[in-house]
Design a binder for these strands. Structure first.
Length: 765
DNA sequence: GTTTAGGATTCG
């Protein structure tokens, strides 16, 4: 690294083999290999090129401790890349250390009265330049005075992306605000686009160095001057603090990291950052919004307008205009444009934006600010309306275009989304275009109806899960969620990195909605043991046959004394069809009860006491209905006698499990899937619980344990949601709705997340 | 030598 900023004292921070040399000891013929010279820049010349094309840069350094002596200054000549790098970052007044220099006779010593030698530095000579980071002080925006040059921090409240001014430079207008709640609008000029702050969003944080403050219209104004430099940071709380800058070298201390975090936090609650961004799928006619998209084609239309063909992976819900241009004028991959024709929208940009639009590269990612959608209809078909996209002339409201770098998080997300579109696009797009061809988009209300439908269809193809509500909400990035206070609800789009339990049958639990307790589903073998235990006592004939049930007893072969008693519950003193009948069984084995449950609607396992029949312990199911075994909560149930069932038998009995539980004084437990999903959207990772009775998998939790078919189905779904051995990039997307909530874990408060209003897409099932 | 723009939507 030929240029390394030193943040602190050079004596302690420079490599230990380097020794400081005074000007008076600098002589030709002495070995300078391990020497360094430290001085203050008192003069710097413009960066130029030598006759042979080599970059050249010259400064004058003054020896810090010896400033009164006549020969306290020395010329330093930079060659090649080092000249280029230093020429851009060195300012008058900076302190700098030069090591690994060559000493040469100064041809101008007689004229400039400086040291008789000069220092030559270049990468080839193995030189290293250490600019010593000055201790910057930052002025709060409430303390600005006209006619000063200051360093500032601020959150971006408003900005115009750089545009070509009428002069010679690019211009960007940026309004910043800080914790003092004072705004400052800065007008920034530079001939080099890269030198202007790389602001992509309201809420980004900027650091300006050496900005001139002056008064304009009785207000403070910031303006670029000599040595202006800026850093820009993502304004998202908790996002990595990576400065966006064209500077090759800049100071950046831990303290400054803290400043940015503080400003982010402040801006998050004091700055409205929810700019008018939208996806094409969310556009409304008559709207200004910011669009993040990819350029797939461009064409000159006339002198004052230019066509951009863009897409963002989503479909505009309205038919949009197609701007007619000569095929030969259209730049871009014609095949791709044809393939994406139903997702692409045509944008006309006007006047001052034309020059910038012309320079855009097809394939690049753009953010188009304050794009205008306008509803129009054809002259000859007034009932058929469509949407036009205009980027009007001028820069009001930050109207403009900015190229986003490939590593921008929004671009990464967009790319991933576009990739997922590609997989299924053809069939999907074709089916939708046939809808459009029907010409039924004439009325807006009908259009909405169709859009909602096709939108949900699209979601199902693009994401392996779909929302059952809240489709109108925008996605929130996981890192934003992780840095926000609970409770809140979010729509997210993420990938399922992993999940627990991996053995899917372990995800089924029993839940008591009264005491909120969760418990494992008892093992079938446990039930068998309880049944065997009951069977050891013979049925009491005295409690057989009553007003509301008839009883029958069977003997078993070669099984000792075991008898099976079945009590058929009557309605209106009559027996019903078996498929409508509830029976109470005593002395049966698990195998026998299973067999009976195929034939009778409901089975209640019982035993007999001297006086009556009674329910078994609640470790056993209190009711079996087909393959579903119903359990009761031991804590919350307050069991009543079996006689209570007679009240149900009197009415036309439908034998609803909840009704049976109610009359028996049992608090029924519900079967639920409880799983932990580790979700990842590229911005962060979050564990969300799935707590689902049936909705998510479209499989009732109550039937999974007794159905190998349903278990296979669930396994298949999870294999689609999270295919084993797949890289994160290749995993499918999940659209989910999650809520955050606080959980007290001893002394510590913890935030948990739960998935809800989400289900596996129909085409996955 | 130090402009340009100086926030505040819409013709197309």
């Amino acid at each position: 690294m030929p240029v390394q900023v030193i943040d602190g004292s050079p004596e302690t921070l420079l490599p230990s083999h380097l020794q400081k040399v005074d000007l008076k000891y600098l002589q030709m013929g002495c070995d300078q290999a391990n020497k360094y010279f430290q001085g203050t820049v008192i003069l710097s010349y413009p960066l130029t090129k030598l006759g042979n094309g080599t970059e050249f840069f010259k400064i004058v350094l003054q020896e810090s401790e010896n400033s009164c002596s006549k020969t306290s200054t020395i010329n330093v000549l930079f060659f090649g890349r080092l000249a280029d790098d230093c020429g851009k970052v060195v300012h008058q007044g900076d302190t700098m250390v030069v090591a690994g220099f060559n000493l040469a006779k100064s041809p101008s010593a007689n004229e400039d009265d400086r040291h008789c030698c000069h220092l030559e530095v270049s990468e080839d000579a193995g030189s290293t330049i250490y600019p010593v980071a000055p201790k910057y002080t930052y002025t709060p925006l409430s303390h600005l005075k006209g006619g000063t040059i200051v360093n500032l921090y601020g959150a971006v409240k408003f900005f115009k992306p750089p545009y070509i001014s009428k002069g010679t430079d690019y211009c960007s207008v940026v309004t910043i605000v800080d914790q003092s709640n004072v705004k400052l609008t800065c007008t920034l000029f530079n001939g080099n686009l890269d030198a202007l702050p790389k602001i992509y969003k309201i809420g980004d944080i900027v650091r300006f160095h050496r900005i001139k403050i002056r008064e304009y219209n009785e207000q403070m104004q910031g303006i670029t001057g000599i040595g202006f430099a800026s850093l820009t940071f993502d304004g998202t709380v908790g996002a990595p603090i990576v400065p966006r800058t064209s500077s090759k070298s800049y100071s950046f201390t831990e303290e400054e990291q803290k400043t940015i975090e503080e400003l982010r936090m402040w801006a998050a609650s004091n700055l409205s950052v929810c700019g008018p961004t939208a996806k094409l799928s969310g556009v409304q006619p008559m709207l200004f919004f910011d669009l993040t998209c990819q350029l797939v084609g461009k064409a000159e239309v006339d002198g004052s307008s230019f066509l951009l063909k863009v897409w963002d992976g989503t479909k505009c819900p309205y038919p949009s205009w197609k701007v007619l241009v000569e095929e030969s004028d259209l730049e871009g991959d014609k095949v791709l444009i044809h393939q994406l024709r139903n997702l692409i929208v045509d944008i006309l940009v006007y006047d001052n934006h034309v020059k910038l639009a012309k320079s855009l590269k097809v394939g690049s990612f753009l953010r188009i600010y304050s794009l205008h959608t306008k509803q129009a209809s054809a002259e000859n078909q007034p009932d058929v309306s469509y949407v036009e996209f205009h980027l009007h002339g001028g820069t009001c409201y930050g109207r403009g275009i900015r190229v986003l770098p490939e590593n921008n998080p929004d671009v990464k997300e967009l790319k991933a989304f576009m990739d997922s579109v590609n997989l299924t696009e053809s069939q999907n797009v074709e089916s939708m275009s046939s809808l459009e061809l029907d010409g039924i988009f004439g009325s807006l209300s009908l259009c909405h109806f169709l859009t909602d439908q096709s939108y949900s269809e699209r979601c199902q193809q693009l994401s392996v899960t779909v929302l059952t509500d809240h489709q109108h909400l925008d996605d929130t990035a996981l890192n934003t969620i992780l840095n926000s206070a609970a409770p809140q609800q979010y729509r997210i789009r993420a990938k399922l990195r992993t999940f627990k339990p991996q053995k899917l049958y372990q995800s089924v639990k029993l839940y008591c909605s009264k005491c909120n307790s969760l418990q494992e589903v008892p093992d079938g073998d446990d039930f068998d043991l309880i049944l065997r235990d009951c069977a050891a006592t013979a049925p009491n004939p005295e409690v057989h046959n009553s007003l509301w049930y008839d009883s029958a007893v069977w003997d078993t072969e070669n099984q000792g004394q075991r008898k099976i008693a079945v009590h058929f519950v009557k309605h209106d003193e009559l027996l019903q069809e078996p498929e409508d009948t509830l029976i109470m069984v005593q002395g049966g084995t698990l195998k026998e009860i299973r067999k009976l449950s195929r034939r009778f609607k409901c089975i209640i396992p019982v035993r007999s006491t001297k006086e009556d029949l009674e329910l078994l312990d609640l470790s056993a199911p209190f009711l079996l209905q087909g393959k579903i075994w119903h359990y009761g909560c031991k804590q919350c149930s307050n069991q009543k006698t079996i006689q209570s069932l007679s009240s149900l038998a009197e009415e036309e009995p439908s034998w609803e499990p909840t009704e049976i539980a109610r009359v028996l004084g049992i608090e029924p437990l519900q079967y639920v899937f409880v799983m932990k999903f580790t979700l990842d959207d590229g911005t962060g990772t979050l564990d969300a619980y799935l707590f689902d009775y049936e909705k998510f998998f479209q499989i009732p939790a109550s039937e999974v344990l007794t159905s190998s078919l349903l278990q296979e189905k669930m396994e298949m779904i999870m294999n689609i949601l999270c295919p084993p051995g797949t890289k994160l990039d290749d995993l499918p997307w999940l659209e989910c709705f999650i809520r955050s909530y606080n959980v007290k874990d001893g002394m510590e408060q913890q935030v948990c997340y739960q998935i809800f209003d989400t289900m596996v897409a129909e085409d996955v099932i």
